[in-house]
Write a protein that binds this DNA or RNA. Sequence first.
DNA 1: TCTTGACCCTCACGTTGCGATAGGCTTCAC
DNA 2: GTGAAGCCTATCGCAACGTGAGGGTCAAGA
Lengths: 194, 194
Amino acid sequence: MSFTVGHLAKLAGLTVRALHHYDAIGLLVPSKRSESGYRLYTQDDVLQLYRIQGLRRLGLSLTEVQTVLARDGAMIPEMIAQQLAELDAQIEHATALRSRLLQLRERLAQGNEPDPGDWLATVELFSHYDKYCSPEELNRLMVPGSEGEDKWKALVTDARAAMDRKLAPQSVEARALGDRWTRLVMRRVDGDID
Amino acid sequence: MSFTVGHLAKLAGLTVRALHHYDAIGLLVPSKRSESGYRLYTQDDVLQLYRIQGLRRLGLSLTEVQTVLARDGAMIPEMIAQQLAELDAQIEHATALRSRLLQLRERLAQGNEPDPGDWLATVELFSHYDKYCSPEELNRLMVPGSEGEDKWKALVTDARAAMDRKLAPQSVEARALGDRWTRLVMRRVDGDID
DNA sequence: TCTTGACCCTCACGTTGCGATAGGCTTCAC
DNA sequence: GTGAAGCCTATCGCAACGTGAGGGTCAAGA
C-alpha cells in the first residue's frame, strides 16, 4: 500500500512541488521508488509527513522541523519557548507599525487635500521625526561632548515643535529646518566622526 | 558637494552593499560618477534616500517604494490602507499561533514528563485535531452526501473526546483512532474523489 | 494498435533584500 | 612610495517553494 506524490499531496493539502522540495532537502524522502522512478510513499512516510505538518503549524521552519525530528522530539519545549518569544516580538513590532500608520493617516487627512508632493514631504518629515528623535539614533550621530552637540539639541527641539504645530512641509520654515539639519549631518559625515 | 557611498551609508544608517543594491535595481541611482567610476550622491539623492527610508519605515517593499515614488506620492493613502490591512491580518495570525503554542505547552506540561517520543506524538495529534476539526478542512475532505460521511463524523467525535480526555498518544485506543482515520483518508484519496 | 490525457520525472530560473566573499583599482596620508 | 582604507564589478547564498521546459509512463478508449 503506497501513495504517489500526487495522492500524498492531495491527502496532505500541499503541492507536488513542495513534496519534491522536501525530498530534495532530505526532509521527507520516499521509502521507495517504482521501476520507472516514481516516488512511492509508505504509511510510515505519511505519518512522518503529519509530524512535519504538525511542527510547521507551530511556525517552525523546515530546517527547524528537521532538527526537531532528528532529535526525536526532545527540545520541543525549548522550541515552543523560542517560538513564543519570536511571536511576541513580531506582534509588538507589527502593532507599533500599525499605530504609526494610523497616526500618519490622521495627519494626512487633516491637511485638507494637499498636493501629491506634499504627501511625500510629509512622509519624509514624519520619518525623520521618527528616526532622529528616537534616543537610539540620536546617540548614533550625537557623540556626546562633541562640538555640535548643543546645535543638535536645539535643532531637535525646533523640529519637534514644528511637527507638533503641523508645519506645512513646503513652508520656508520647514525648508530652513531641513537645511540646518543637512548641514549638521554633512559636517558629521565629512568629518568622519565615528 | 557630494557623498561617496561610504559616507552616504554611514549617514543613512545602512550598508554600502544596500546602496549598491538600490543602484542595481534602479531605486536610487547616484546622479554622478567620478572619473574613476566612484558613485557620487548629490544632495537631491540624499533627499530621495530619505523619502525611500520614510516609506520603508511604513513597511513597504522596495518595489512598492519604487512605484510610490514613480507616481510622485499619489496613492499614498491607498498604500497606507493596504499596509494596515496586511498588518491586521499578520497580527491576527500571530496571535492565533501564539495561543495555540500556549495551549500546547500547557498540555505538554500536564503530561508529567513523558517520553521524548510522546511529545512528537502529542504534537502530531494536536495538529490533526487542529486541522481536521476545523470546518474548512473538514469540508475539503468530507464531500457532503458521500458514502463515508457518517463514519467521518463519528471518528471526529471520538477523536475530540479523546483529546478532551487527554488520551495518552501511545495507548491502544489512540492507535486505533489513528488507524480508523488513516483508512478513511486512504479510501478518499485512492478513490480519487475531488 | 495507436493515441490521448493525466500522471510522473529532472533540471533550472525567479522570488526578497541584501550579506559575504573574491579579485582588482584608487586615493589619501605618512 | 607604500600601506591602509575605500571603491569597483561579479557571483553565490539564504527560505520555501512557484512556474515553466522538455520529456518519459500508464491506463483507457477508438
